[in-house]
Amino acid sequence: MSSPAVRVRSQAAFETRTLLGNGEQLLVSLILPAMALIGLAVSSTPDLGPGRRIDIVVPSVLALAVVSTAFTGQAIATGFDRRYGVLRLLGVTPLGRSGLLAGKALAVLVVVVLQTILLSVLGALFGWQPNLGGILVGALLMLLGTWTWVAIALLLAGVLRAEAVLAVANLLWVIFAAAGGLLYPTAKLPGMVGDVVRLLPSGALGDGLRDALTGHEGSLLLPILVLLLWGLAATALTATFFRWDDK
């Protein structure tokens, strides 16, 4: 007889192994962020603003990796689980629907921790020196960002058909990476665009992690508030509109 916590842990372990064994998932969670890190570290364009370049690049790539795993990877995986009836099957086991979603979220968190460690080590090889005082608040931002982006992923996966989820999740990843404040600071975007992007969960996560890990913790209230509001809104919308099958 297993308890709810044991079942959720079991589901998280099952999901984590499935995620780590999936080549496309590894590509989007680890290999593409690592390539972005190396590419931005060895080049001098685009201009990322004042300060040591690598100290701006690594938090930016960590933000991108959170969105890769929590949003793009999870939206696609859940969209196809829904298509193939996996959500229905596991939802009627003792795990239940809430346990299934909790297991998925926990698995994403485990992968985010693993990719953060690996990308941080890679960053350190390129000379990254994070502001140690900002690590705790950086971890809080990543936790908030993971929750928010998983909620957005589940909303997408629970409403659209699997093929549409695949297309939208990949397209948004490219847009957010390039112009959503993940890899490129919102302050460097043109006027109004920067102001809008700052209020998106991508801009908030990117700016927040850059500020925290480069020693500008004073300006972190806005990113934290933005992520919190998006997280609450996406969670409420997911709870209302998520459908367990796509018939």
């Binding site: 499935t18 064994g21 999936n22 196809f80 689980d81 193939y84 009836g85 996996v86 959500l87 229905r88 099957l89 596991l90």
Partner: peptide, 9 residues
């Protein structure tokens, strides 16, 4: 289930 509900990978 009629559609199996089995994860492919």
């Amino acid at each position: 289930l009629q559609d199996g509900g089995l994860p492919g990978s």
